[in-house]
Simulated scan of single mutants.
Amino acid sequence: MSPDLIARLVCPVTRGRLRLNENKDFLISDAASLAYPIRDGVPVLIVEEARHLDEAS
């Protein structure tokens, strides 16, 4: 994912910034303690699809 796209995306819960995890397979919302999956290069920003940070590792 491009850094420009990541900078434009926000957490649907907090409207806060997201960051890409080390493996580049999740977008992390530190404010909500959620990890949103990236599937086939597409971020899935659906709360029901997100994992709690402790589950995402």
Rank of each mutant, 00 (worst) to 15 (best):
V13L: 10
P43C: 04
G16M: 04
N23L: 06
G41H: 01
V42K: 10
N23E: 13
A31S: 15
V42R: 12
L18P: 01
L27Y: 03
N23Y: 07
P37K: 03
R17H: 09
I28C: 00
A32R: 05
T14D: 14
A32E: 07
E22D: 14
A32D: 15
V10L: 10
L20P: 02
S33T: 14
V44N: 05
L45C: 00
R39Y: 08
S33F: 01
N21E: 04
C11S: 02
V44K: 00
D40G: 06
V44Q: 06
L34C: 09
S29L: 00
V13S: 12
I46C: 08
V42A: 09
R19C: 08
D40Y: 07
P43M: 10
V42D: 05
L27C: 04
A35K: 03
K24M: 01
F26V: 04
R15D: 14
Y36S: 01
A32T: 15
L27V: 08
L45W: 08
I46W: 05
L45T: 01
S33L: 15
I46K: 02
G41Q: 01
N21W: 03
L45V: 01
C11Q: 03
I38T: 10
A31D: 15
G41V: 05
D40R: 02
P43W: 00
L27F: 05
R39N: 09
D25L: 08
S29K: 09
A32W: 07
L34G: 04
P12R: 13
